Simulated scan of single mutants.
Amino acid sequence: MSTTIAPSRRPSRTLSALAVVVLLGLGAVACGDDTSDEVGAEPSGEAATSTTTSTDGRTVEVVATDFAFDGLPEEVPVGTQVTLVNDAGRELHELVAFRLPDDETRTAEELMADPSALGGLLAGAEPTMVLLAEAGAPQIAAVGDGTFTEPGRYLVICAIPTGADPAEYLAAAATSDGPPQVEGGAPHFAHGMWGEVEVVA
């Protein structure tokens, strides 16, 4: 069943940025002894599934699974619009894109391996886009419409807590000025659900 966030009650532009900062510490320690799920471990998601070629179209469908962005290209032209489809069994997923500063030279892999540096980098940042989707339901465009409007490098993550109830999370996000306070484990990016997109003029 799909939950709709009314336009006036959508998450604030800084909600996901705040969630990232809060959850980075959680992601570094909440995965127990399974080192394959820790931030900085070899990604089990994006790195293994993204395409290595540029898209020459203007619309890209990215499929969220547990826990990867399938079809996330490495490079797209300015004006490309991303749509998010959730093909997971139960988990709510989001696609949050942050434009990295022009003078930032570290790769996404290096940034994800250093939670404190990433937290500092994103602390004051506003996401370019935030797309959410429940399994089998239409996406919710919480920030932007999924269009990359400016050239640069973008970090793409999913920061939804693992195991969070989708309806509970969306209801909390619609009424919260900060990270939704819901039960759940490590954020999805701690399991490898992250990527990097180069947007070219």
Results as ranks from 00 to 15, higher is better:
residue 37 D to G: 10
residue 26 L to T: 01
residue 55 T to W: 07
residue 58 R to T: 09
residue 37 D to P: 00
residue 33 D to P: 01
residue 50 S to C: 07
residue 77 P to F: 08
residue 45 G to Q: 04
residue 26 L to R: 03
residue 47 A to P: 00
residue 54 S to L: 07
residue 30 A to P: 05
residue 66 D to W: 07
residue 85 V to R: 14
residue 31 C to S: 12
residue 27 G to L: 06
residue 74 E to L: 14
residue 78 V to P: 00
residue 22 V to C: 03
residue 34 D to Y: 09
residue 86 N to V: 04
residue 93 H to K: 15
residue 76 V to G: 05
residue 57 G to M: 05
residue 77 P to D: 06
residue 90 R to D: 13
residue 68 A to V: 00
residue 35 T to Q: 14
residue 31 C to Y: 04
residue 18 L to V: 06
residue 31 C to D: 10
residue 86 N to W: 03
residue 60 V to N: 05
residue 46 E to A: 14
residue 65 T to V: 13
residue 82 V to P: 00
residue 90 R to W: 11
residue 65 T to Y: 09
residue 57 G to W: 01
residue 34 D to C: 06
residue 54 S to K: 12
residue 80 T to L: 07
residue 50 S to W: 02
residue 48 A to F: 11
residue 14 T to G: 05
residue 14 T to E: 11
residue 93 H to Q: 09
residue 26 L to F: 02
residue 16 S to M: 12
residue 82 V to S: 02
residue 12 S to P: 00
residue 12 S to V: 01
residue 51 T to R: 13
residue 15 L to E: 06
residue 16 S to T: 03
residue 47 A to K: 06
residue 45 G to F: 04
residue 52 T to M: 13
residue 51 T to L: 11
residue 92 L to Y: 04
residue 75 E to Q: 14
residue 49 T to D: 08
residue 58 R to H: 11
residue 63 V to M: 09
residue 17 A to C: 06
residue 68 A to E: 10
residue 60 V to M: 10
residue 83 T to G: 11
residue 31 C to I: 09
residue 23 L to S: 10
residue 34 D to F: 08
residue 29 V to H: 06
residue 17 A to K: 04
residue 94 E to F: 00
residue 42 E to M: 14
residue 35 T to G: 10
residue 34 D to V: 09
residue 50 S to Y: 02
residue 95 L to I: 11
residue 11 P to S: 15
residue 81 Q to V: 08
residue 96 V to R: 05
residue 52 T to K: 15
residue 82 V to N: 01
residue 58 R to D: 13
residue 34 D to R: 13
residue 76 V to D: 02
residue 85 V to T: 14
residue 88 A to G: 07
residue 69 F to R: 03
residue 64 A to C: 12
residue 49 T to E: 09
residue 62 V to H: 02
residue 23 L to W: 02
residue 79 G to H: 08
residue 98 F to H: 04
residue 13 R to W: 03
residue 66 D to E: 15
residue 63 V to E: 10
residue 40 G to M: 05
residue 50 S to G: 04
residue 24 L to D: 01
residue 24 L to I: 02
residue 43 P to M: 10
residue 52 T to A: 15
residue 65 T to W: 07
residue 39 V to K: 00
residue 44 S to A: 14
residue 56 D to H: 10
residue 67 F to T: 02
residue 18 L to A: 14
residue 24 L to F: 02
residue 77 P to V: 05
residue 52 T to Q: 14
residue 94 E to M: 09
residue 52 T to E: 12
residue 80 T to R: 08
residue 56 D to M: 08
residue 61 E to F: 02
residue 80 T to A: 07
residue 61 E to L: 14
residue 44 S to K: 14
residue 61 E to C: 07
residue 22 V to Y: 02
